[in-house]
Structures are given as C-alpha cells and as structure tokens.
Design a protein around this nucleic acid. Structure first.
Lengths: 224, 224, 224, 224
DNA sequence: TATGAATGAGGTTTCATTCAT
DNA sequence: CATGAATGAAACCTCATTCAT
C-alpha cells in the first residue's frame, strides 16, 4: 500500500478508536512509523487527511446505494439498504460521533457532505414514495421527504446520542443496531395492514443482530 | 450584576453565537474587559464555567417541567411542554450544537446530564402512557418509552443536525420550530382517529411559528 | 490573640505541616478565615511573614541558649543544650527542611541568620573549649571551632537530609532525635577516658527518646 | 553537539550558576537561541531535563566509584575516592545546593537517588570496615555504617550549608575542599596511633588544595 | 519521497500583590 | 481594621505546520 493510502487508513482507524479530537498529526505519523514531514509531504494538513477519508466515504456511499428505480421494493431490498447504512456508519463512525464538529471547521467538506446526503435523501425518498404507491406506507405525500429525512437524521446522530449515555469511548456494533431499530420504529409507525408483517420481519431481523453475541453475524447473508 | 454572573452570561452568549470550541477563557475575559486572573478568581477553569451554565440549565429544566400527574393531558399541556422545550433549546443552544463534544470532556457533567435527562424521559413517558390509556395514542406498551426516547433524541440533536446543513453558525428560532415539528410528526404517526384532530392542531400551531417572520411570536401566549 | 500574631502562628503551623513552598498567602488567609487584603494590611508580603516567624525563632534561640560561662559543664547542662536544640528544630522545622531555599531569597534574613548562628557557634565553641580545658575532650585547639561548626551543620541539615530518604513530607520527633544522636556521635569521637562514661550516658538518654513510642516523653524532665 | 545534549548541558550550566529555581524552560530555550517548542520537542518538561542530568550524574558516579574489594586501602585509594567525590559535587553542585527541594518534587528521581546513594554508602562502609579490620580505624562495629553515613551526609549537604553563609550564589572549589576537610575531620577522629600519620597526610593534601589560589590544581595528579 | 528537528502562536493556569470600598 | 474582587506577569505546555537536508 502506498504511504498516502496508509495515512488515510491509519487515520481512519485511529479516529474511530480514539476519537478525532485526541489524534494529532504527530500521532498518526508515529503510529505509522513515518515522520511528520513525510505526512505533510502527502497531505497539506490534517483537514486534507479528513477530506481523503471523506472521499473514501463517498465511494462507499455511491457503491452501496445503487439506484433502485427498476427493482421492486421488498424486504430484501430494505435489508440491503439498512445493511449498507450499518456498514458505512460503522466504517466511518468517528465522523458520526461528532458530525457537527467535523463539518463545522471545513466549509468545503460541508458542501460535499450536503451533496452526498442530498443524494441519499433523494434515493430514500424515492423508495418511500414507491412504498406509498404500492400501498405499503400510510403517509401524506408532503410528508414522504420529511419522513425520509427524519430517518436519516436519527441514523446519523444515533452514535453521538449514545455517547451522551456513557463515558466509555467505544462504540459497539450492537449500539448501531439499536439505532437502526429506532429508525425502523419510526418507519413502521406508517405501516399499512398489508405491510405490517413485512415491517415486523424487518424489525425482527435487526433485533436478532442487536444481541451482543451476534456481532459477528453482521456479515452473513440474510435469510428471511 | 456580579462579575461571577457576568462571566456565566457572557460565556453563554459567546458560546451560543461563536461556538464553545472557539471561545477560550482569554476571549471571555477580554470580552468582559477583565483580566484572565480575575476570571480564574471566580472560576477554577473553563470547565467550571460550563458547569455553572449547566446549573442554570438544570434550573430552567426543573422550573419548566413541573410534574403533570394531576392534570389532564390536553393540547394546552402539550403546547406548554413543547414551548418549554423550545425555550431551553434556544437558551442553551451551544450545548445542543455539540452535546457529545461537550459532555465527553467532563465525566461529572455527563452524570448530571444523564440524571436530568432521565427525569425528562420519565415525565414524557408518563404523558405518553396517559395518552395511551386515554385512547389517544396507538402504540404497544413496550414501545412507549422508546417513542419518548426517540422524540427526545430528535429534539436534542436537531440543532446539531441543522448545523450540518449550512455553513453559518447562527441558529434561528425557525430552525428550532422545524425540529419541534419533526418531533410532533413522529408523535402524530401514533395518533388514533380520536386524537388526530388534536395532533393536527398542535402541528398547525408550530407550523405558524416556524414561519421566519413569526420569530418574535414565540413569547406570545398560545390560543388554540 | 491579635490578627497579626494569628497570621504568624498559622503560617508557622502551615509551613511546618505542608511545606513553605506549597503554602500561598491566600492559603494562609483562607486558613484563618480572613481576607488576603487583611493579611497584606498586617504584612507587606510573604517574606515579611517569614521574617516575623524568624523573630520568633530568634527569641526562642536567645531564651534557650543562655550564657553558660559561670556554670560547670556537666551532663545536665549538655542535655539542656541538646533539648533546647531539639525544641527549636521541631518548632521551626519548616525552615530546616529547606534552609538554603528560604535564606537564598531574602538577603536581610540571611544576615540575621548569620548573626544568630554566629552567636550559637560562639557559645558552643566556648562549651567545647571548657570541656577541653577540663580534660573531657581530646581535640586540637584549632579544631574546637570546626568541631562545633560541624555539629551545628549536622543538626541544622539533618531534617533536609532525612527528607531525601522518603517521599513523605512528615517529619517526626523520632527522626530529630536520630539527628541529635549523630551529633553526639561526632562529639563522642573526641571523648577522653575520663569523659567517655558521660558521653555514653548522654547518648543513652537520647537513644531512649529516639524510640518512636517515647515521642511524648520529650517534654519530661530528664533524670540521669 | 546535538540539540538534545546542548539542552542538558546548558541546563546544568544555568542551574549551577543561577540556581535551578530561577531557571525556567523559557530561560533555557532563550539561552540556547531555540524556541520553547523545540525544547519541548526534545524533553517532556523541565523534570525530564533534570532526569537527564541525573542520568549523567549516575554515569559519573558509577565511573568514579569502581569496586575496591581487591585493592588495599591506602592513602592513594582514599585520595582517589575523595577526588571523585569532589569532582561530582562540583559538576552537579546545583543539585547539592538544594537536594531536598529538587528530590521532593519528583518521586521517581528520589528513588533513583536513594538507589545510587545506597550503593555509595555500601562502598564506603566496606572501606571503613576494611580499615577497621586492618587496625587503622578505632570504632565499634555497629558504628561503621553510621560513620559512613554521617560522612556522606556532611559531603552532600556541605554546599547547601555554605550557601547559608553568604549571599553570593557562586560556589567555589575552595569551599568544596573545606567540606572535604570536614569529612576527613570526622573520619580522623577515629584514627588509631598506627593510622594517624596517614590521616594527617590526607588532611594536608586537601588543606593545600583548599587554598584559594590552588583552585586550578584540582585536576593535577596527586603525589603524596 | 522521506526525515525529524524546529517553529511559534496560543492556550491554560497560578499567585503574590493591589486597591476601591 | 477588614473585605474580596481584581490585576498582570509569568509559568507551563501543545500541536499544526514548516524547512533544511
């Protein structure tokens, strides 16, 4: 791996485990066994490293959330959607730990964040819209986007929220699954008699995963 | 006003408008035209100032959320509840801008936060429970607390969320009302045929306030 | 007691138990429940307080070491001499903990110290001289004063020396008695066959007192 | 010379001439014409610098006090012993100026000091023991170690003692030789008729060196 | 590419002392 | 006599960043 990539990955790793605030550029260099000068040869500054991590984040988002327009929206698609969400939340959890903090110090990054989030919002709005059209979601037309947005908001801030509940820094996968269950709960409140069973299955699926012991199961394919 | 109080209020003001991170003890002292030594005469350190602000916060919370046990839960009570919430979110918006960040550096503060939030959660759970018993809320028994918790979470993190949407640091009252509307939306999804009209009135009330021009109306008494 | 005296005594107490370095003028004021301003009304500065303590020290020295010229030098006189020494070392132990440090920051104090020490040296030299003339001390004439000086030096620096042996701040009376025994040991090396028994009795006397349990016995009158 | 070493040597120099208390990290940096940040790049803090100086001290001690077990204890050995003592007292005189003060703020340093002093005490006790067995020292068995300890104590605190005698901070080599003479005096009080001549020669040797004009002679080899 | 010493601005904090009341 | 808030110099330390090699 190139030094450049090594820096990005080591930074992500350190940020995720120790928190972005506590990690200085010197820490990163020391962790990799390279000199601070070398780090600054590859990156203009710390912000620049975070931007590179953000590029990685964008790549994951785009790869994970392919357009669904042509597919039918069924449980498997939703599970796929939530699994991708989980994966990204987990991989970049340091960002979600303190989104406001990280974005507030870099205007350019904020713009990129807004763009990528708009995309995600559009896609999830589309899915909700389709569910509504299929009679699977009971909701006013003008509330589709707000619902999608609320679900996104809960997903994005769940990690930060959980961190206001204990002094330990560690974020567990279990804690992330609890967040997904909350998103599903908001979602399910709009279920129709036709779709309630589907929502229940979705919920049960993540309830199983939210058990501490099933952390390792998160990569397994899902059989509903 | 005593210097001690001046420091607390100036700090709150500066934190709210410039962000807690950017304000150092030197800034606060300079802003008040006092020496850094004087500031440290009144407060052990910056943390100590924040703790004093937090005491103010606790006072407001306790004053605002009196027990509701003996009263009937009607729209006015809910409006009162949401108005208090709004007031506190507004007054201490710097905290809500970056709850995770602020609490993560002071274990004692975190404990106080947890305690006060537990109280708030208990009270709102009680209200939701009563609404359910009165046939005004359609929800499983074991979902009452999660719903209350979700509503609280959205309320608490809405400011941070909004800050990931624009580069300006300023938080407007309008933006806060949008947050309340989202909380109400989550709430309303569990309305029964009996209560839907009530929820709608509640929603409309805050929709009016959420218009930018009605910012100044936030202090007016509410006539439903 | 006048505030002025209260300050002197509280300072001495605090210096002895906590160490002069760790005690600020504000500590002293707080300990007495008076304001720092009041303290500075009575004393120009911290140095001034120390000088007042030093006056107390001088008083004790003069009271304790009356001229011995007309008396015979016997064991009781020596015991009286060492007891006074012990008493003063104990009362003003904070000074002896760090003599160099305290005197190096106040030239005037140093001069007073030199004067009072010269007096003490003269008196003890006289005693040693008399012992020599009485055939109780085997020593060259030109070594009388150096011997007296060495004994004084060991007595004065014993406390500081003991403090380089453990991290605890507390100085015990036992530890002081050990110091006296060392002084006696240097002394006794010059005993003559005539006087050796006397020296042994002197030594035994303080060996008894150096037992930890006999701390309280230090005030008892001595029966040889 | 590396910056790291420069800092250690400049600090030792400044401490010796101006006193450790008066020298801050900023002073050291300014003296070397480097930035405070650079100093902190090489050393964690002032304590860390002192610890490095202490390592130098340990090196000197170990190099200077080789085990004497196989050699006969004669005047030359004793002179070598005292010369090494002199050299170390001189090089690290800032430490001896205020041993108590310096050791009291760093527990780890105190431990290292105790260890190295124990070693020194053991070696000098051995020498005294051998002298006694050879009939050159008149002393009780149980007083051998106390004597060695007293000699060490006088040597270690002599500098501090001398500083309570004059306001100038400067310590001269002459003053150190006076200290050695005092140590020898304590030592010599236990001479036997066999050894008295040897002790006298030892004393005369250092009496010559203690003449102010012979300061420069300290490096000359000694011919008895 | 890479090193690692060096920078320097800026933050936190302490404390002897002053001063208006 | 007494208060206690206020001062300000100076200490300590951090860290993103630069620069000569």
């Amino acid at each position: 791996m190139k030094t450049c990539e090594k820096i990005v990955h080591a930074s992500l790793e350190l940020f995720n485990t120790k928190g972005e605030r506590r990690i200085t550029t010197n820490h990163i260099a020391a962790h990799l066994g390279i000199s601070p000068g070398n780090l600054y040869y590859h990156f203009k500054n710390k912000e620049d490293i975070i931007r590179s991590i953000f590029s990685l984040y964008e790549t994951h988002l785009h790869a994970g959330f392919q357009p669904y327009e042509n597919k039918a929206v069924d449980v498997e698609l939703l599970v796929g959607y939530f699994d991708t969400m989980f994966d990204i939340l987990w991989r970049f959890r340091f960002m979600y730990t303190n989104l406001t903090y990280i974005l507030s110090s870099d205007e350019a990054l904020l713009q990129r964040y807004l763009q990528v989030q708009q995309l995600a919002l559009d896609r999830s709005s589309n899915i909700l819209g389709q569910l509504k059209r299929d009679g699977l979601l009971h909701i006013d037309d003008d509330k589709v986007m707000p619902l999608a947005d609320t679900m996104r908001m809960v997903a994005c801030f769940w990690i930060g929220y959980k961190q206001t509940h204990s002094s330990s820094i560690a974020i567990t996968k279990t804690c992330l699954y609890e967040g997904l269950l909350r998103v599903i709960m908001i979602f399910k409140a709009h279920a129709t008699p036709t779709s309630i069973a589907t929502f229940n299955r979705l919920e049960e699926h993540y309830q199983t995963l939210a058990q501490p012991q099933s952390c390792q199961a998160s990569e397994l394919s899902v059989q509903l």
